[in-house]
Amino acid sequence: MTDELIIKSLSTLEDLQEVQRLEILVWGMDCVPTHQTITAVKNGGLVLGGYINDQLVGFQYSFPGFKDGRVFLCSHMLAIHPAHQKKGYGRLLKLAQREEALKKGYDLITWTYDPLESVNANLNIGKLKAVCSTYMEDCYGNMEDTLNEGLSTDRFVVEWNIRQEGREEITLPENSTHIVITEMNDQGFPYIKDYHLETNADVVAIPIPTDIQKIKKGDLRLAIDWRSKTGELFKTLFANGYIVIGIERVQGEHIQHYLLKKTGLRGK
């Protein structure tokens, strides 16, 4: 169950200053200047605020993007107040973003996220049905906030085709050979024991831990190992025509899997 979340488009300086305060609380780093957000809103961008009892508990910020002759909405930031996380508000804000983007004439929304963050993976790939075929190494350089400190800021670039009603659902065939083997170490953390990069399978599964932040706090070297090995796997598979198109998650497990399908289209 969720409390009633009221979502509205924000455009006043006062509202955007309130967004700044929530951004600082959630991310713990320098916030986006209001002169940037208010300019974006006036020029095809979007800031949505989610309210409970007139209190701002979440927001989403996006601005216009342009690449290869195509205009799209670039979704830069989504944040939920710590006291209201894991209630489904992030998904509601993204669905509201979709509706507002359609009204503005967009048909594509893109954004980046850390592929090792399982909650974001479940929202972006699992629930919203976005896809990914681009891996960016150290996208934002060194960041010292709690979530990013200690790891390179590698990111997935996801694409959400908002005029499509659905997306092909895939599963890993029962007789599939995993190209990544994981085990648990003495600390109770999952690790990649072995992997290989050569495969011709139509569908492959790449694991990530369900709690990379816990691993990072307990064993930073292991977290870095997860970043390095999964990064190599994703970059190789994308270059060979695979695309992330699904999530396989088992309740209570320490890992979950991205499902990638071979398309023949070369990614990055």
Rank of each mutant, 00 (worst) to 15 (best):
D54V: 10
I24S: 14
T39S: 15
Y140Q: 13
P173Q: 09
H178G: 05
V119H: 02
L233D: 07
Q251V: 08
W111L: 00
K217G: 09
D219C: 07
W111K: 00
D154T: 11
A40R: 09
P82F: 10
A101G: 06
G246D: 07
N122H: 07
E159N: 11
V71G: 00
V180P: 10
V26K: 03
I192Q: 08
L48W: 09
I38Y: 08
T230D: 04
E183D: 13
T2W: 07
T112L: 03
I247T: 03
W27I: 01
D154A: 11
K216E: 04
E168R: 14
Q251Y: 06
R21K: 13
E144N: 15
I215C: 04
A201R: 04
E232H: 02
I24H: 12
S62C: 15
F189H: 14
C31G: 06
I247M: 15
M77Y: 00
A101Q: 01
K268S: 13
E149N: 15
R155Y: 11
T134A: 08
I170S: 09
T210G: 10
S62A: 15
L222K: 11
K268Q: 12
G45K: 05
G264T: 09
V203G: 04
T134Q: 14
P33C: 08
K262W: 13
A40E: 12
L73C: 04
N175Q: 09
Q251M: 03
D145T: 01
E168Q: 11
D15Y: 06
A223D: 09
G126I: 11
Y106H: 04
L48I: 14
K104V: 00
L108I: 08
T236F: 02
V19N: 11
I255A: 03
E14G: 06
A121W: 00
I206C: 10
A101N: 01
L78N: 00
I245H: 00
A121C: 01
K193F: 04
E159Y: 15
G166T: 14
E159K: 10
R163P: 07
Q187P: 04
G90F: 00
E165N: 14
Y89L: 01
M77W: 01
D138P: 11
S118L: 03
N122F: 01
E159T: 07
Q55W: 01
R167C: 11
F234A: 02
I224S: 09
